[in-house]
Simulated assay, not measured.
Amino acid sequence: EVIKVKSMATQEIGLNEHLESQGVRAYETDLAELIVQLADDKPSHILVPAIHRNRDEIREIFLKEIPGVDPELNAVPAELAAAARAYLREKFMTTKVAISGANFGIAETGTLSVVESEGNGRMCLTLPDTLITVMGIEKVLPRYEDLEVFFQLLPRSSTGERMNPYTSLWTGVTPGDGPQEFHLVLLDNGRTAALADSVGREALNCIRCSACLNVCPVYERAGGHAYGSTYPGPIGAVLTPQL
């Protein structure tokens, strides 16, 4: 078993399906990603993957797919979240390997970062013995100080917050604290070819904030599944053909 932090890079390469074929069960720990996974569904939005599901549907998914869930579970969002939390807590405490994406990597120091709003990422990044990060090569920033502008830009563009609730940074391993084995997988998957395109390379500047989806009249009408790819919306229409 492995636990996972929300990662579009791993969705892009079909990692969960590959692991399943090798006898390894991957558990998504982001609440929306968990809903999508339990329903054997596909994400429909970059930031809120289960936005196409209402709370009654989510209740039915939990009753059917989460072992030992209270059969009297109702559709109150707080109670649905509590049911997911109880289910995931066991996974956090017992699973030895975690897989994450990364929002940004720093060339200068070798530091990686994940920003999130639920705390599940912090659990995955600190509790397991082994951490594996899959990061697209376009996520690398030159200097540590470059994080300043991106840590302001990302939450404001994605959720309208001044700062995201959880910011995790790690640089290799620290004896006796956190994962004791760390692997970084740098993902190309068409990115080098896109970089060679003087116009198309601009799509690699995307920081996955989802602001483009939220103002797009086509996405509003068609929904994320209509794009048939990991990256929906305007950025997906530009980026996906290049990958």
Rank of each mutant, 00 (worst) to 15 (best):
L213W: 01
I207V: 12
L184H: 05
G160I: 06
M123H: 07
E145S: 14
N120Y: 09
Q180F: 02
G121P: 04
E148H: 12
E148S: 12
P155G: 03
R162Q: 08
T159K: 14
L154K: 09
V173C: 02
L186I: 11
S210D: 11
R208Y: 14
S117I: 08
S158E: 02
M163L: 08
L154M: 10
F182Y: 13
T130M: 12
G160A: 04
L213M: 15
T174K: 12
G176P: 01
P179I: 00
R191S: 03
N189H: 07
L187F: 09
F150S: 01
E202M: 07
R191K: 09
G172M: 03
Y166S: 01
V199I: 14
F151V: 06
E148A: 15
D129S: 14
R191C: 04
N120Q: 07
L213S: 14
T130I: 12
V215R: 14
A211M: 05
S157T: 09
G136R: 07
L204I: 00
R156G: 13
G190D: 02
F182V: 04
C212K: 13
L187C: 03
W170Q: 01
F151R: 08
I132R: 13
P155Y: 06
E138G: 10
D146P: 10
L184N: 02
L169C: 02
V185N: 03
L147W: 10
T174P: 01
L187I: 07
C124N: 09
V149K: 08
Y219D: 11
G176L: 02
E138S: 12
L195P: 00
P175A: 13
G160W: 00
S198L: 14
M123V: 05
S210C: 06
E116S: 15
D188E: 04
H183K: 07
G119M: 13
S158I: 00
V173G: 02
T133L: 07
G178T: 01
R191L: 03
G176F: 00
